[in-house]
């Protein structure tokens, strides 16, 4: 590094040619001023680098444990009963503030006049209001980060704080994120948010601390009906691989080319 700096600064520090090219209007060598300015800029960089968030993206927390794995998520619409235990579990497990959500449940209601009403549970107790009588059909859909293969959020992050692990989980380095919100805008699924306390981007991590320890995400663990499924898509014997093989499924907003790794079984076209 030092050598590179020396090489770069050499023509400015020495050499008759540089001396000749000096602008005649300046009677004091501007090199001194430039040297001072570069020293000042260097100091600023050192201050920034010693600040919290050293500028380095942390190593994949799971290390080589999950090597060769490709995590996927399968949600079975027909099995979900809208109990919202998953929302409770996620909030508790990940200490998610009240005003934001890493995962949530939507209830789709096809009314008698064929209009569609979409609702989320009350923020207070995560309960849905009773269904009115004139409903043709109703179903629940879980939403969470799709951990896309072609992620628009990591693409747009200007500082590289948003990244994808080798096993395909999209994470955020909270010590490095500047909180610009570009990733929040770029995510087509509305699953990212700016954390009201830390002021940086946040989202579902698939409970990476749990799956790295061989456990399942909190939302999957507490789901009483098995609507939420998680596993290794590279393993043909895993539950998610089996479900995808046996059922027809859809992903959300496929036209955007994000290649989500969250598949939905039995999903109606009303859901976006």
């Amino acid at each position: 590094m030092k050598n590179a700096q020396d090489k770069q600064s050499q023509p400015l520090l020495d050499g008759a040619a540089a001396e000749d090219q000096r602008c005649p209007i300046n009677s004091v060598p501007r090199r001194d001023v430039l040297r001072m300015l570069s020293a000042l800029a260097g100091s600023l960089l050192v201050i920034e680098c010693t600040n919290e968030g050293s500028g380095e993206i942390p190593e994949d927390p799971a290390g080589k444990r999950n090597a060769g794995k490709r995590w996927g998520y399968v949600f079975d619409v027909d099995k979900c009963i809208g109990c919202c235990l998953c929302m409770h579990a996620c909030k508790t497990e990940n200490d998610v503030p009240e005003s934001v959500y890493r995962t949530w449940i939507e209830r789709y209601r096809i009314n008698a006049d064929h209009t569609v009403t979409v609702e989320t549970p009350s923020k207070k107790d995560f309960r849905f209001a009773a269904l009115p009588g004139d409903v043709i059909k109703a179903f629940f859909v879980a939403k969470l980060c799709n951990h896309c293969d072609n992620t628009p959020c990591t693409q747009v992050c200007p500082v590289g704080a948003s990244y994808q692990t080798h096993d395909g989980v999209v994470l955020i380095d909270e010590q490095h994120c500047v909180g610009c919100g570009y990733c929040v805008q770029a995510c087509p699924y509305g699953t990212r948010f700016l954390h009201p306390v830390t002021k940086v981007a946040s989202k579902c991590t698939l409970c990476y601390h749990r799956i790295s320890a061989g456990k399942r995400p909190a939302c999957v663990t507490v789901c009483p009906t098995g609507a939420r499924n998680f596993g290794d898509l590279n393993d043909p014997k895993s539950e998610v691989s089996r479900l995808i093989k046996r059922h027809r499924y859809r992903v959300l907003k496929p036209e955007l080319g994000t290649v989500p790794r969250c598949a939905y079984l039995g999903l109606d076209t009303e859901v976006v």
């Binding site: 600023l44 960089l45 920034e48 680098c49 600040n51 968030g53 500028g55 380095e56 993206i57 990591t154 693409q155 747009v156 992050c157 200007p158 500082v159 590289g160 704080a161 490095h176 994120c177 500047v178 909180g179 610009c180 919100g181 570009y182 700016l194 830390t198 002021k199 940086v200 981007a201």
Partner: peptide, 26 residues
Amino acid sequence: PLLMHLGRPERALNIMITPNFTSAMA
């Protein structure tokens, strides 16, 4: 205005220290 908007303005220089060149903002 950008600094006023950033959640963590003290990290603003990260955009030049660790730029992610796939980002239009970088």
